[in-house]
């Protein structure tokens, strides 16, 4: 039983269905990626988990019970559209938002200090948000999202809008928080970050769940029996010497040597390919080409449409 379970959630907006029977189980201390093209329903789902909007049908189970208002203190949410009160001072604002999450003023103060030191924001305390640069405001926003040490963190497109330095900072913090026992859900269409961080994903398209599960299982499912071999020797000899069950997809020459991409027909094994290759060339490297999340994403979405 995971920390959060979304069960058959349906949400309609005047005439169009934003979520259709979406379910997902988020294991504790996982980094869970919510993927999908724009308008797929990711933000709607995250808002439902945050109790900002209510589902038309379905339930959200958090820590074993239907989610309620008291649980907001255990959840941190960074919405896609970021914003703070522009005319309010940074320190006051951070205190206010922390208190809204249920911290006492004293505790909030106590916890804010180390964060402000860590992010070198100490001198901003008395400044108005409108005096800060966008990158600075993003740091403030991040601190206010995590200040109450939530067990579940929800980031909507966390890497869009942050500058590269803050993106790295964010990634480090995400990994750090997971190490400390937090669970993280984030939505994105940045597939590189998914490969880098996520261990589970759900792919939504047009309100429906397309793909779901551990990222390794999904890759397994989408493997194409494609292998790459880096070799030295005559490429003609390689293409002529390949057995019938192997197809040469391409040949390339680059700085490290020559490489060939070969697919294996169903039933054949990679060991057979290696044996075959040993006879006709000298292998420098041999590995399976796994589909990138980007490929899987595009393939799944195009197939669905």
């Amino acid at each position: 039983m995971g920390i959060l379970s979304v069960r058959e959630v349906v949400k309609d907006f005047s005439g169009h269905r934003a979520l259709n029977n979406v379910s997902m189980d988020v294991p504790r201390t996982s980094i869970y990626g919510l993927l999908g093209p724009n308008g797929a329903g990711k933000t709607t789902l995250l808002r439902i988990i945050n109790q900002i909007t209510a589902p038309d049908a379905g339930t959200i189970i958090f820590e074993g019970h239907p989610i309620g208002r008291d649980d907001t203190a255990l959840i941190g949410y960074l919405p896609e559209e970021r914003g703070l009160y522009k005319k309010m001072k940074v320190g006051e604002q951070a205190l206010y938002l922390a208190q809204l999450k249920g911290l006492s003023k004293h505790d909030a103060m106590q916890r804010l200090k180390p964060w402000f030191e860590k992010f070198e924001m100490g001198s901003w305390w008395g400044k108005k948000v409108e005096e800060l640069s966008k990158g600075m405001a993003q740091k403030v926003q991040f601190v206010t999202t995590v200040i109450h040490e939530p067990t579940l963190l929800i980031f909507d497109e966390p890497f869009s809008g942050f500058d590269p330095i803050n993106v790295n900072l964010l990634k480090q913090e995400i990994l750090e928080m997971r190490k400390n026992g937090a669970t993280i859900i984030f939505s994105t269409h940045n597939m590189a970050s998914v490969e880098e961080l996520c261990d589970h994903i759900t792919l939504i398209n047009e309100a429906e769940t397309l793909l779901q599960g551990e990222i390794n299982d999904i890759r397994e499912k989408y493997r194409t029996s494609k292998y790459r071999v880096v070799f030295t020797g005559d490429p003609d000899r390689l293409s002529r010497g390949l057995q019938k069950q192997f197809t040469l997809e391409g040949l390339e020459k680059n700085g490290t040597g020559q490489q060939a991409t070969i697919t294996i027909r169903e039933g054949a094994k990679s060991d057979d390919l290696i044996r075959n290759l040993l006879e006709i060339t000298e292998i420098k490297a041999f590995y399976e080409v796994l589909p990138s999340m980007n490929d899987i994403f595009i393939q799944a979405v195009t197939e669905h449409e």
Binding site: N50, I52, R69, Y77, P79, G83, Y85, L97, T144
Partner: peptide, 17 residues
């Protein structure tokens, strides 16, 4: 309107009704 245009609204309503 200020809360809407500054986009802080979503942060606030994730904490309070």
């Amino acid at each position: 309107i200020e809360e809407k245009t500054s986009r802080i609204i979503e942060v606030i309503v994730s904490s309070v009704r």
